[in-house]
Amino acid sequence: MCSLCGILGGNEHWADAVARPGVYTRNTERLDRRRERANRVHAANRVLSCFALSLSDWQGSSYVIANRTGKSEMIEDLGHLWPAAEKMTGRPLDPLDPDLIARMEALHGSDVR
């Protein structure tokens, strides 16, 4: 357990398994691991920005989710991201919300080939 944040270690999230095998789960390939984490933070922020939230890496081991007033919470992996984000915004964050989809389409250019 991390004595600072009280999170029990060793909890492997399914999304950690694939990016590059071992990037998240083994203590090798530190640069790749950092790169993947930066990637993930970036991808999460694309969605979170729609709700005035942001995610940042914390010491390469956890993440910090924050809103624009500075309220922040530490989360361990993707499994905790959305419950924490919902708690912070006080409303359900719905990936099937047509307005959010339209916003993501505009960001992503889903029809751009």
């Binding site: 999304a15 990016a19 993947e36 993930r40 991808a43 999460a44 969605v47 993707l78 991201l81 964050l93």
Partner: peptide, 10 residues
């Protein structure tokens, strides 16, 4: 994959 992980968890 990274975006997929974020989407599916959401």
């Amino acid at each position: 994959w990274t975006a997929f992980g974020i989407w599916l968890t959401m």
